[in-house]
Nucleic acid binder design. Structure first.
Lengths: 199, 199
DNA sequence: ACTCGAATGTTTACGATGCTCACATTACAT
DNA sequence: ATGTAATGTGAGCATCGTAAACATTCGAGT
């Protein structure tokens, strides 16, 4: 994918910028977030500890870049679950995908959401906007007469919260299929709760 | 509250264990989570860098202790909003309190939920159990005929997600009253969505 | 083709951190 | 009173983020 003479040891790397996020992503998946240091990234990219600073202002900038990739991959994952859901059932399958993503790549997910970071980072803003939009469209199709804005955030919050509670061990996440069942049951419960509420 | 001769400089601190969590909590509130280092805690407690290790195995153990305090304070905050809600309105006020807690003490909240940590820490387990229980009781009263388990996690997830999305800047949190409105609107939207859904 | 500035990497260095170990001091149980 | 366990100190190690000065290479303009 990247044009790079592979093994020829050149002084200039070729595409350190991209290599850094790749390395960072690998470290993240292999050894968790504590393993993600700029120095480790540099080592893995076969470059001196200071080199990454030519491409990222500081550690946080790199983290933002990684998070941005994470957002894109999350979006793909959701789309793979269902490109344009319009029933609660389809919506549920997307929700399950969301939670599964979080559980399969916990370190990445936490980088994306758990840390205080550049809210101003363009990549991040663009990437999250995509997720937001996707969600809003779902809501419009599934609940055409509802308050789109409010319901979209409600659903995002619900699913996001489910992901986090599983991640944090508040909800058992040892068995993936059990998780899927719980997610669907949870959504189901909410959907039927209205009629039972004491207002 | 703690028996301690205040200013007399004794070799032994008196209650370093407690002093550490206090210092840690202060650092957290004053300067954010990056400021929370074991060394800084030791400094603030007026003690050598190695001293805290007599009471906490490592940084994570201290963090867990701080988080446990956070859980207790969160529980108090929720109870203050309403000791035993039994209508959706009262439930909503508790939800608002939850989100406000997160926004007023973001660093603490992130320590409590955003980091991977001792799931086995007894203090933490006990503290979260209290929150869980409180929530479950709310659900039983408010939705007596619903699937308690599922609905309780649904509501927790929803509120927790709302808190995190605000924290992360996904939802604007500059104006506290606007946040309160959004939270109520969000819950409201969910409560009325069922009847509009395409099943 | 040549030159020279801009981009990109390297080296070295500083201060801070988590944590360990050997040692000092104190409290308490006998 | 005495000795052992609890608690605090000091020095030290590896790692980290980051900055500054220097080296190498790329590419644009002649």
């Amino acid at each position: 994918m990247y044009a790079m003479p592979a093994s020829k040891t050149t002084y200039h790397h070729g595409d350190l910028r991209a290599a850094c996020v790749s390395a960072a992503m690998e470290l993240l998946e292999e050894s968790g977030e504590t393993a993600l240091s700029l120095r480790a990234v540099a080592r893995r990219a076969g470059v001196s500890p200071a080199a990454p600073y030519r491409h990222y202002a500081d550690r946080e900038a790199l983290v933002s870049a990684v998070a941005a990739v994470g957002y894109r991959e999350l979006a793909e994952r959701l789309a793979a679950a269902h490109p344009s859901p319009s029933t609660t059932e389809q919506l549920t399958s997307v929700a399950v995908a969301y939670v599964q993503f979080a559980l399969e790549r916990p370190a990445l997910f936490r980088m994306m959401f758990g840390e205080p970071c550049d809210r101003d980072n363009d990549e991040r803003i663009a990437a999250t906007a995509a997720v937001t939009l996707y969600l809003r469209e779902i809501v419009v199709r599934t609940f055409p007469q509802a308050d789109t804005e409010a319901l979209a955030t409600a659903i995002w919050a619900l699913v996001h919260g489910l992901a986090f509670l599983h991640l944090e061990g508040k909800l058992d996440s040892s068995d993936p299929s059990a998780v899927a069942n719980r997610v669907t049951a949870t959504i189901q419960a909410l959907m039927t709760a209205t009629s039972l509420a004491k207002l």
